[in-house]
Design a protein around this nucleic acid. Sequence first.
DNA 1: GCGCCCTGGTCTAACGTTTGATCACCGTCG
DNA 2: CGACGGTGATCAAACGTTAGACCAGGGCGC
Lengths: 355, 355
Amino acid sequence: MSADDEAGADRGRTSATAAVTLSEVAAKAGVSVSAVSKVLRGTTAIRVSPETRQRILTAAEELRYRPNFAARALQAARTQVLGLVVPDLTNALFTELMHGVEDAAAAHGYTVLLGRLDTDRPQTEVIARLLGEGRVDGLVLQATDGVDPAALAQLLDPRAAVVLINSVAPGRASSVTVDDVGGGRTATEHLIGLGHTRIALAGGLPTSYTAQRRRRGHQEAMRAAGLDPRADHETALGYTAEQGRQALRQLMALDPRPTGIVVANVNAAIGLLAEARALGIDVPRELSVATVLDSWTAENTWPPLTAVKMQFYAMGHTAVVSLVHRLGSGAMTDEVILDPAPELVVRESTAPPSS
Amino acid sequence: MSADDEAGADRGRTSATAAVTLSEVAAKAGVSVSAVSKVLRGTTAIRVSPETRQRILTAAEELRYRPNFAARALQAARTQVLGLVVPDLTNALFTELMHGVEDAAAAHGYTVLLGRLDTDRPQTEVIARLLGEGRVDGLVLQATDGVDPAALAQLLDPRAAVVLINSVAPGRASSVTVDDVGGGRTATEHLIGLGHTRIALAGGLPTSYTAQRRRRGHQEAMRAAGLDPRADHETALGYTAEQGRQALRQLMALDPRPTGIVVANVNAAIGLLAEARALGIDVPRELSVATVLDSWTAENTWPPLTAVKMQFYAMGHTAVVSLVHRLGSGAMTDEVILDPAPELVVRESTAPPSS
DNA sequence: GCGCCCTGGTCTAACGTTTGATCACCGTCG
DNA sequence: CGACGGTGATCAAACGTTAGACCAGGGCGC
C-alpha cells in the first residue's frame, strides 16, 4: 500500500446537465425554431435577413448549442455513423486499418463507431444490434478467424449495408481484401532468392480466408521455383504468439529441418522467434524467418523481423468508400487491394542458408 | 499482381432496408402501439391478457422487430451508452482495460462506444461531440500523455459525467488510477533485492501523471534501501519503443554504467531491450531490465521481460462503476486501485549484477 | 339498483429536429 | 385600384418510442 493514495473522497454533486435545444436558441434570438434550424443547418434557399441570421448565430454561440444526435438521427432516419467491427482491437496492425477507415469516413461526412467482436457472443448479435437498431448506417466488418466463411455468409442479410474486410461472402456482402496471395508469395520468394530450398509455412487456421490465400501465394512461389510444397512442411495452427511457438516446435521436429520459415502473421512470428531463442536455435544463421504483415513490434524483436507490409490503410479506406457507395447506389462489390503491392521490408531475421 | 484476383465486380442493388416499427407489429397483432411497447418493454403493471401478450410477442418475433435506437434515446433523453476514449487503441494493455469496462457496463445495462483520441484534434472537440450531442451518457477518458493536466482540467466541464483514468482533475472530473507508485516501487525493489545498486529509471514524459507517480515509487524504493536516486540516472523521454531505445543509449553513456534499469512502460522496455541487443549488451548478464506494465508482448521478447502487472481490468471496471454511480447520484470521486496490488512477474531479463 | 373497483386495453402528448406548406406584408404592374 | 410576386419569416407534421391519463365493460358489495 502506498502512503500517498487515498480513495473514495466524495467531492460534489452534478446538476443534470440540461442540454441546450433549438427552442432555447430560438427564444433567445426572438425567432421561431425552424428559422434557427435552417440558419444553423445552412439550408440552401435560406431566405433570412442578415440581421436575423446574425442574431441566431450569436444566440447559438452564447448558449453553446449542440444539435441532439438522437433527434437528428430519428428525423433523418440515418445516423451518419459507420461501424468498424473487428475481432481484436489491440492488434498493432489495426492502427493502420483504422486510420484508413477514419480518413475516408471523415471525407464523406461520417463518424466511426468502433466495435469489438466477442468470441463468445454470436457475431449476428453484434450486427443486429448495430444495424438493426439503427445505431449505424453501415458496417465494415472483419469476421473472427475461427468462423466458417460459409456460416458467416449464411447469417448476413444481403439487404444490410455491410462490407467485409479480409474475407468474402459472394452475393451477401461487399468485400475488400488485401493481396494475401501476393504477400505469401513475396515472403516466400525472398527466402528462395536467398538460396533456401527447405522452406516451411507456419500458417493460419484452415477456415481463415487470409490464411488460405497466403498459403496459396506461398505454394505458387514454391512451385514457380521448382520446389515442392510438402504437406509436412506446413502447419495451420493460427495467428497468435503461442500458436507460432507451437508451429516452430512442430517444424523443428522434422529431419532434415527446414532452413527457412514463412509465417502467415506477425504476432505468430514474434512467438515463433521467441521460441527459437528458447530452443537455442540461432536466427538467422540456422533458420531464416520471414513474416507476412509488418508492424512496429516487428522491428523490436531480436533479430528484427523481415516482414511483408500489407496495405491495411488502403484496405480501410477502400472499404469505407465502397460502403458509402453502397449506401448511395446499393451496389455490391468485391475488391482486392493490388496497388500498391505488398512491400518486402528486409531486416535481420533472414539470411542465406548456412549449410 | 496475382492472377486469381479480380476487382470491382458489381453484383446487385439493395432495396433500402425498411426497418420494422412498433406500429407494424401493432397492426399485425391487432392491438395499439402502446400495448406492444408495454409488452415488449416488460413494463411493470402490465395489465394485458395472456393471449394478447402472446399475439404481440409472436408478431414481433415474426417481423423481427428491433427497437429504434434513436427514437428510444430521444424519448428517454439518454442512450444507455458509455464512451471509452483513449489515445491509443492498439496497445496490448488496452485489452484488459476494455474488458473491465465492458463487463461492468454490461452489468449495468450499458453498451460501450470506443473512441480514439486524435493527437492533432483537440480533446475538447471529442468530448463535446460525444457528450454534447448526446451520443453517450458518460465518458471514461484517458487523456493523451503529452497534455498538461492543468490544461486538461481547464477544459473539462464539471457538470459533465466524465471519469478520467490514469490521470486526475480534482473538482472537475472523477478519476480512477492504478497504483503507479506501487508499480514503480515493486519493479525497483526487485532489482534492489537482486543486489543492484546502480539502478536507472527510463521514465515517461514529465507531464504524464502515471510517469510522475511511477517515478515517485522508484525514488521511494531507492531511498528506502539507502540508495540515492541520481538525476543523471533518470530519463523522461516517453512510452514508445523508439523513446525506450533513446533512453538506453543515454543511460549506457554513463560511466560507470547502471547495472539495472526500471522502465516505466512495457512498449518502451521492448524498444530498450532491442536496442541493447543491437549495441551488443547482454541482458541480463550485463544489464537487468524490469518494466512496469505487463502484456503478451513482454513474454515474447528475448529474453522475456520481467514485468510488474498493473490492474487494468480493475481500473476499467471501477471506472464504469464510478461513472454509473455519478450518473445516478452525481457524486464525484477519486479512486486508486490498491487491491489487488501490482504483481511482479519474474522472467529472464533480470538477474544479480555480475560485477 | 347504484356506485365502485378491477381488468384490459387505447389515446395522447412529448422528446428535439427537419422540412414542405403557409402566411403576412409590401412594392409593383396592368 | 386590385391582382401578383417576392421576401422573410412561422406553422405543422413527421420520425419511433414511451408513459401517464383515460375509458369501456363487467363483477360485486351494500
